[in-house]
């Protein structure tokens, strides 16, 4: 039986990226510090995966200032949302197939 692994998105292979995307699916926007706290990861780790998602054009970055403190907000793009949904569908398909086996 052919297992549709190719439908799984390579960009979401990393767990943290998938988690970031889930948060941005449930919220219109989310800031860097809240993300860091929620996911319990280091600055560098989070930043590099955010960069990766940004390069795929799955998320948009908004930089602004709250008083003097820089505030970076992230938002999922339409492309990112579609990719996330497709990835979830693929995961679901995998489960269904394995149940049949």
């Amino acid at each position: 039986m052919k297992i549709p692994f190719e439908n799984l998105n390579k960009a979401f292979e990393n767990r943290l990226r998938l988690q970031i995307m889930s948060v941005l699916m449930a919220n219109q926007r989310y800031d860097f510090n809240s993300l860091k706290e929620l996911l319990g990861v280091t600055d560098g780790n989070l930043a590099s995966h955010l960069k990766g998602l940004e390069k795929e054009e799955y998320i948009m970055v908004n930089k602004s200032f709250l008083g003097r403190k820089p505030n970076t907000n992230y938002e999922a793009t339409e492309k990112g949302k579609t990719a996330f949904k497709n990835h979830l569908d693929a995961l679901e398909q995998l489960i269904n197939q394995q149940k049949i086996k």
């Binding site: 767990r15 998938l18 948060v23 449930a26 929620l38 996911l39 979830l88 995961l91």
Partner: peptide, 12 residues
């Protein structure tokens, strides 16, 4: 993976 996604969406 799916459970973690669901819980994150809720908690966030």
């Amino acid at each position: 993976e799916l459970t973690s996604i669901r819980s994150l969406m809720e908690r966030s």
